[in-house]
Amino acid sequence: MKINEIQKLLDAKLYCGEDGLSRDVKSVCGSDLMSDVLAYNKDQSMLLTGLVNPQVIRTAVMMDMLCIVFVRSKTPSDEMLELAKDSGIVVMGTDMTMFTACGKLYAGGIVNDFRVK
């Protein structure tokens, strides 16, 4: 699914990374725990999170992610957006809760079924 379609599905506001909106997301990781995001090397290209700090952006950089969406109206700081711009990551925000946002994406066709064992 293209990032601009995700933006519509989640009714999301774009903070930065307009150039990346046509890029394709094949799988999504939803977590507030960065250690968990780092633990599974599954080529997940988008992060949904309610955690707001610079390590969220750096974690996404480490995992080669294309896009971060903050749920529950969490707002990234200017410093975080600078870090994201530096790495070409699309950053958006939605009023939806994590559960609702995940559900919309799953129903919309992003149906990665990763299990840890």
Binding site: D32, L33, M34, S35, D36, L38, A39, N41, L51, N53, Q55, V56, T59
Partner: peptide, 16 residues
């Protein structure tokens, strides 16, 4: 509360 300290750091380092 900052998203770390879940006891995954060293195991992740070994894994990668």
């Amino acid at each position: 509360s900052l998203g770390f300290g879940a006891g995954m750091g060293l195991p992740n380092m070994r894994k990668y």
